[in-house]
Amino acid sequence: TETYTFDSEDQAEEFAQRAQKKGYTVEKRKENGKFKVRVE
């Protein structure tokens, strides 16, 4: 499980979609103005 942090929602969304296409489970959340994407 890895967590990635992005400054913009667009970046987080793009990353999450790519990860989902590769078959990963993706969980997105906003925390302290940053966008976190957890991938497993």
Rank of each mutant, 00 (worst) to 15 (best):
E31K: 04
E14G: 05
E2V: 15
Q20S: 09
K34A: 07
S8W: 07
R29E: 10
V37W: 00
R29L: 15
E13W: 07
K22E: 14
Q20P: 01
F6H: 00
K28A: 06
R38S: 12
Q11T: 08
K28I: 15
K28Q: 12
Y24F: 13
K21H: 09
K34T: 07
G23V: 00
T5F: 11
K22S: 11
E40N: 12
K30H: 11
E40A: 12
R18G: 08
E31R: 03
N32Q: 08
E9L: 08
F15M: 03
K22H: 13
Y24D: 03
R29C: 12
E14T: 07
E27L: 09
K30C: 09
G23H: 03
V37I: 08
T1R: 10
A19T: 06
E14K: 09
N32E: 10
G23F: 02
T25L: 13
Q11M: 11
Q20G: 06
T25S: 11
G23C: 03
Y4C: 10
F15D: 01
T3H: 06
D7F: 06
T25H: 13
T1N: 10
E27I: 13
A16I: 10
G23P: 01
G33P: 01
K30T: 11
E13Y: 06
V26F: 03
D10N: 07
K28F: 14
Q20Y: 09
F15L: 03
T1H: 12
R29S: 14
T25M: 11
V37K: 00
E40L: 14
Q20M: 14
E31G: 03
E2H: 15
K22M: 15
K22T: 06
Y4W: 11
E2T: 14
Y4D: 01
T3V: 12
R29M: 14
K30N: 11
E13G: 04
E31Q: 05
A12D: 00
R38N: 08
V39H: 02
Q11G: 06
F15Q: 01
R18P: 01
K30G: 07
K36W: 12
K36L: 15
R38D: 11
T1C: 11
E40R: 12
E9H: 06
A12L: 02
T25K: 14
E2Q: 14
E27Y: 13
K28L: 15
T3Y: 11
S8C: 07
T5I: 13
V39Y: 03
V26Y: 04
A12T: 01
Q17F: 09
E13T: 08
R18W: 15
F6R: 00
R38I: 15
D10P: 07
E31D: 07
F35L: 03
E13I: 08
E14H: 07
A16F: 10
S8M: 07
G23R: 01
T5N: 05
Q11E: 15
R18T: 11
E14W: 09
R29A: 11
F35W: 15
E13K: 05
G23Q: 02
F15Y: 05
F35A: 01
Y24N: 04
K30D: 06
K30V: 13
R29N: 09
N32V: 03
E14D: 11
A12C: 05
T1V: 13
Q17H: 09
A16V: 09
A19P: 00
K36S: 11
Y24A: 05
E40S: 15
K28V: 15
K34W: 07
V39P: 01
N32W: 04
R18L: 14
V37Q: 00
G33Q: 04
A12I: 01
Q20T: 10
R29H: 13
N32P: 02
Q11S: 08
V37E: 01
T3R: 03
D10Y: 09
E31N: 03
Q20A: 13
N32D: 12
Q17R: 12
E13C: 06
Y4G: 01
F35K: 00
F15H: 02
E14S: 08
E9I: 06
E14M: 09
K21S: 12
G23K: 02
V26R: 00
S8T: 14
R29F: 15
V39N: 00
A12S: 04
R18D: 12
F6G: 00
G23D: 02
V39I: 13
A16E: 04
F35N: 02
E2F: 15
A19K: 06
A19R: 04
R38C: 05
F6P: 00
E13D: 14
F15A: 03
N32L: 06
E9N: 06
E2W: 15
Y24L: 09
F6Q: 00
T5G: 03
Y24H: 07
R29W: 15
E2N: 14
K34H: 08
N32R: 04
R18A: 14
E40T: 15
E14V: 08
K21E: 14
T5A: 06
Y4H: 07
A19I: 09
T1F: 14
Q17D: 11
E9R: 05
R38K: 13
E13V: 06
T3K: 03
T3P: 04
D10G: 08
E13F: 06
A16G: 04
Y4A: 03
T1W: 15
V37D: 01
E2I: 15
V37Y: 02
R38F: 14
R29D: 07
A19S: 06
N32K: 07
A19N: 05
E27G: 05
V26D: 01
S8I: 05
V26T: 10
T3D: 10
K34V: 11
K34I: 10
K21V: 08
N32T: 03
K34D: 03
Q11P: 03
Q17E: 12
G23M: 02
A16D: 01
Q17A: 12
E40W: 15
R38H: 10
E27W: 11
